[in-house]
Simulated assay, not measured.
Amino acid sequence: MPEPHTDKRPLAERIAAEIRKQIMNGEWEPGRKVPTNEELRGQFQTSNVTIQRALQILKDEKFLEGQTGVGVFVRAEKAQTLVPAHYIAPAEPGQPYRWLTEATKRQQRGKYRMLKVGEVVPPVEVARALQLEEGGTAMLRSRIGFLNDQPAELVHSYYPIELARGNRLGDRRLIPGGSPALLAEMGYPARSQDDAVAARPATTQEYEELEIPRDVPVLEIFRIVYSDEDKPIEVTLLTKPSHRFKMGYHVEIS
């Protein structure tokens, strides 16, 4: 019989994990005052020093906020669930990219800042998804999305080079209506997409650009968008800070 897998993390980290879960699932509501150290000591059967360490971890991760002379509170902003299906269809003529209009519906200010646009040899998994030959290139468009001036997502989108040369996909400026609208105008409407979601530690770029606190992981979405005849027209590597966002999916069951 193999030995049982036990949690060997320091107790303060285990307590922080329990509280973090309650914050993320909404059991501890935004703005709630955290129980006293005495109450937490009794709940977790540990010392005041350990409770202080656990709370400091969560403060560093921006889950808790201390108010001098008042107490410690759950952050005012709850984790936000974003639904990728809301952004698949191209924007209506003359309208911004759907990611921006959906932000407006939630009474948030959305904006993008471009980081890089250019022809590159993409990562192996991207090249496979785009069905490129060995050494083949793609057009890369990298950008950061902000919600209420906070970095919300780091996006690296790759396009088949034959679709991207000589049009706005190769332009450093933002695309009116977003790439789905442009691709649809070019005769390549989005018909379906595959998403693979994972959680992992942040890279240095993600840590800095997304302002990741402490060791909070990122959510990584690997997305392939297909047009007619299952032609891949876009592959996107998208990362989001996991302490602020959840991914939401709705599936019809016949």
Results as ranks from 00 to 15, higher is better:
4 P>Q: 00
4 P>W: 02
5 H>E: 14
7 D>C: 13
8 K>A: 03
11 L>M: 12
14 R>I: 11
16 A>I: 09
17 A>R: 13
18 E>S: 09
19 I>T: 13
19 I>R: 07
20 R>P: 00
20 R>I: 13
25 N>Y: 03
25 N>H: 07
27 E>P: 01
29 E>H: 08
30 P>W: 11
31 G>D: 02
31 G>H: 07
35 P>I: 15
37 N>H: 15
39 E>K: 15
41 R>A: 15
42 G>C: 02
42 G>N: 06
43 Q>L: 11
56 Q>R: 13
57 I>M: 02
57 I>D: 01
59 K>I: 14
62 K>S: 11
65 E>S: 12
68 T>V: 11
71 G>R: 14
71 G>K: 11
75 R>M: 14
77 E>M: 05
77 E>A: 09
79 A>N: 05
84 P>G: 12
84 P>T: 14
87 Y>A: 10
90 P>D: 01
91 A>Q: 05
93 P>K: 00
94 G>S: 08
96 P>H: 00
96 P>R: 00
99 W>K: 14
103 A>T: 02
107 Q>I: 01
107 Q>V: 01
110 G>K: 14
113 R>W: 10
115 L>Q: 11
115 L>N: 14
117 V>W: 02
121 V>A: 09
122 P>Y: 01
127 A>I: 04
128 R>D: 13
136 G>F: 07
137 T>K: 08
140 L>T: 06
140 L>C: 06
144 I>L: 15
146 F>T: 06
147 L>S: 09
148 N>W: 12
151 P>T: 01
153 E>W: 12
154 L>F: 13
156 H>D: 15
156 H>V: 10
156 H>W: 10
158 Y>F: 05
158 Y>H: 04
159 Y>E: 14
160 P>F: 06
160 P>V: 06
165 R>G: 05
169 L>K: 04
175 I>D: 00
177 G>M: 03
182 L>N: 10
182 L>P: 15
182 L>K: 01
187 G>R: 01
190 A>C: 07
194 D>Y: 03
194 D>E: 12
196 A>S: 08
196 A>M: 03
197 V>H: 03
197 V>M: 05
200 R>A: 10
204 T>E: 13
205 Q>C: 02
205 Q>F: 08
205 Q>N: 08
206 E>R: 02
211 E>S: 07
211 E>D: 10
214 R>L: 04
217 P>H: 07
218 V>F: 04
219 L>T: 03
220 E>A: 08
226 Y>T: 03
227 S>W: 06
227 S>Q: 06
228 D>F: 06
232 P>T: 07
232 P>A: 04
233 I>V: 15
234 E>Q: 12
236 T>A: 13
238 L>Y: 03
241 P>L: 05
243 H>Q: 10
245 F>V: 02
247 M>C: 03
248 G>A: 07
251 V>L: 05
251 V>S: 03
253 I>P: 00
254 S>H: 07
254 S>I: 00
254 S>F: 04
